[in-house]
């Protein structure tokens, strides 16, 4: 059920966001809708998915400086507001 609601909410959210630039920024007027989506996403657990990892940032910076990874700006993300 949560998955269905999440999917519907995100589809609706995408309709609103697609009229904007491709990167969703913190001044998106549909923050309320996306906050609801975030809550559902977190509460679903996702035990079946690969885990989120914490990286060694010092090592990541070294790799970036040697050209083995990039820190290229990504699109399609939102800033999480703790409030």
């Amino acid at each position: 059920m949560k998955t269905i609601v999440l999917t519907v909410l995100f589809l609706v959210g995408s309709v609103f966001s697609s009229a904007e630039e491709s990167s969703i920024s913190s001044d998106n007027t549909d923050r309320g809708l996306f906050s609801l989506i975030m809550e559902f996403a977190v509460s679903e657990g996702r035990l079946w998915a690969r885990s989120i990892e914490h990286v060694d940032m010092d090592r990541m910076l070294e790799l970036m400086e040697t050209g083995l990874v990039t820190f290229h700006k990504a699109d399609w993300y939102v800033i999480v507001d703790d409030e």
């Binding site: 995100f10 969703i24 996306f34 996403a41 996702r46 998915a49 993300y77 999480v80």
Partner: peptide, 13 residues
């Protein structure tokens, strides 16, 4: 923190 919305995992990082 950020939330990636590229794929349905919707990772909060």
């Amino acid at each position: 923190s950020v939330q990636c919305v590229l794929c349905p995992h919707l990772c909060i990082l």
